[in-house]
Design a binder for these strands. Structure first.
Lengths: 192, 192
DNA sequence: AATAACTGAATGAACGTTCAATCATTCTAA
DNA sequence: TTAGAATGATTGAACGTTCATTCAGTTATT
């Protein structure tokens, strides 16, 4: 373990993996510690308690998503192109890091995602809201609530990735084209 | 308690409410028993163990959804009308029974929803698949995988209800029209 | 009388958390 | 430069609690 930040990160990554595999009820602190290569007590140097750890994963994950998407966003492009880049990169990210996809899906629908958490400033959410806001400012998409818009889009991306994952073999034999879902959503939100 | 079926039902409903409020990790058998008005041991007359109880809730919930939607489906109508009825009734159902909405959202993204569960015959899923299949047979919607189609549609309904719930007050001040989401999805799946 | 349902205290395993002891690193002062 | 004091991180056994599950005894039903 090089330094403290690495240690905190390895605790988070161990917990992330366990939640993905076994759900919130299947990631005991003892196991998190074991997989992270630290003692159980060490976790409490970095997190107040288990709930704090779960929220820590969420914040870490949100940061990762933002980095991946924002680094690949080219604000000089037409908004339509930026939208499809956003969709493609987010999909790519989820497929690259299935544990994040699994954790996020579980977290967002769980009581861990309390009103308190939702009201906390979140740089990924803020980035996404600004992203859609700029689409409106440029007249590319209809004026609507950017928060609602980002939830709608993100839900459909997560859902598409889940379908792709669960029906990998079956999909090959049908003519379903999940790429179309992005066009479908775009058609619905773009300015007339 | 009138009879055995009522008792089983009240156990399920008590557990459903607790999962909705506190998540899977926050519904101890002792509490389930208390809220259901039975002793802890009685639960084991109806369910092998706690996992069996959770799966029992899922099956009960799927049954409820199917009853509500299928009773209100008029197969003699144009498929387009049936689709919008489906959407409206499902939304209505979720808003009427927020605990079911909350439980279902959590269950579907959790490891409880194992491959084994997914492969079990499920009369609600079968009904939904047949519903979309009949839309294809009549040439109203594009030929695609009805399983994928129902997941896509159901995800968007659940998501829309969640947005509506979380942004109730905020939405009133914007010109977001969530009803449009159903039209957006319909435009994407209907036959050209 | 026989069977089945029900009870709730008892059980033991699992869990989150604590803490005295140990180890590593940084600082102090001679 | 360095002894050693001070600080902070780390450990893992121990603690108290909570939990799912069991079962001997009780009540209800057939």
């Amino acid at each position: 373990m090089e330094n403290l930040i690495d240690k905190k990160q390895s605790i988070i990554e161990s917990a992330l993996e366990l939640v993905y595999e076994n759900g919130f009820h299947g990631c005991p602190v003892s196991q998190v510690a074991k997989n992270a290569g630290v003692a159980a007590g060490t976790i409490y140097t970095y997190f107040e308690n288990k709930e704090d750890l779960i929220v820590g994963i969420y914040e870490h994950v949100a940061q990762q998503i933002m980095n991946y998407i924002s680094e690949r966003d080219d604000a000089s492009l037409e908004f339509e192109n930026r939208f499809f880049d956003y969709w493609r990169n987010f999909t790519e990210f989820y497929e690259k890091y299935p544990a994040i996809h699994g954790f996020y899906d579980q977290f967002l629908n769980s009581p861990f995602n309390s009103e308190e958490i939702q009201n906390k400033p979140n740089i990924w959410h803020e980035w996404a809201h600004k992203f859609f806001q700029s689409g409106m400012d440029k007249g590319a998409i209809r004026v609507t609530n950017p928060v609602v818009l980002s939830i709608l889009v993100n839900t459909n991306i997560a859902s598409t990735v889940r379908i792709k994952k669960n029906f990998k073999t079956k999909l090959a034999r049908t003519n379903v084209n999940l790429e179309e879902i992005s066009h479908l959503i775009w058609a619905g939100i773009k300015a007339d």
